[in-house]
Amino acid sequence: MARIYPSTLCLLLLAALPLICAHVIEVGASKKECFFEDLHVNDKMTVTYQVGGGGHLDIDFWLTDPTGNALAKQIKQSTGSASITAKRDGRHEYCFSNQMSAIADKLVSFNVHGVLYVGEEGTLILSTDTVAPIEREIRDLANGLKSVKDEQEYIVVRERRHRNTAESTNARVKWWSVFQAVVLFSVAAWQVYYLKSFFETKRAF
């Protein structure tokens, strides 16, 4: 079994933990927003996203390598995920496009997960199968933390979406009730006026 020194344990933990970046952006109507990550060969990156508001809650997403080849493409999705392993060094770009909508802006929440891969002495390349048990446990823990964070982000977006729907429904019910009350009082006032004028006409003859 490989000997694990305390001084290298933190390094292994840092190498195993994904670099998680959470963002919330607004993609305007007929526009797109693009971002990039500089990756090296065999680096892994995962992008997850959810549409939290606007229009039909859908967005176009694609991810390209440094040469412009599409590595992932998803059309009109409300939530999605794309994972890649870099085949070459360079800038990998991912975009969120709202160009299908001419009116509605979209609110998009997305996470970017990246794993550090280093091959120098004293570190570990996590993709290999020959890993020490403690290193495997650290990797599993890191993956578990990533899943928990993704689930929390998804719950937050769904809660915001449901709250907005409930508030919109409550506003519609309120104004519909006000409209009904106005119509009811208007009809009642018209009936009183009509009956009153009818009897006054009868007495005149």
Rank of each mutant, 00 (worst) to 15 (best):
M1S: 12
M1L: 15
M1D: 09
R3I: 15
I4Y: 11
P6S: 00
S7Y: 13
T8K: 13
C10E: 13
C10M: 13
L14D: 14
A16L: 01
L17A: 14
L19K: 13
L19W: 05
I20R: 11
C21E: 07
A22L: 05
A22S: 12
V27H: 12
V27C: 12
S30Y: 07
E33T: 15
E33W: 12
F35K: 14
F36P: 02
F36L: 12
H40T: 10
V47D: 10
T48D: 07
Y49G: 00
Y49R: 03
V51S: 01
G52P: 05
G54L: 00
G54N: 11
G54M: 01
G55F: 00
G55M: 00
D60A: 00
F61L: 00
L63N: 02
L63Y: 05
G68P: 08
G68H: 07
L71W: 07
K73Q: 14
I75C: 01
K76Y: 02
Q77E: 13
G80R: 03
A82Q: 09
A82F: 03
S83V: 02
S83G: 09
T85F: 05
T85H: 02
D89R: 15
G90H: 03
R91F: 04
R91Y: 03
H92I: 00
C95L: 01
F96G: 07
Q99S: 13
Q99V: 15
S101N: 04
S109T: 11
N111F: 02
H113P: 04
G114F: 04
L116G: 04
L116D: 12
L116R: 13
L116N: 13
Y117N: 05
V118W: 05
G119P: 11
E120T: 08
G122Q: 03
I125L: 12
S127F: 07
S127G: 12
T128R: 14
D129F: 09
V131Q: 14
R136Y: 09
E137I: 11
I138V: 06
I138R: 01
R139N: 01
D140W: 08
D140E: 10
G144H: 05
K149C: 08
K149P: 02
D150T: 09
E151I: 06
Q152L: 13
E153H: 03
E153L: 06
Y154T: 13
Y154H: 15
I155F: 12
R158W: 00
R160D: 07
H162P: 02
N164T: 11
E167N: 15
K174I: 04
W176A: 11
W176S: 09
F179S: 14
F179C: 09
Q191K: 15
Q191T: 14
V192N: 11
Y193D: 04
Y193S: 10
Y194P: 07
Y194Q: 06
L195T: 03
R203K: 15
A204F: 10
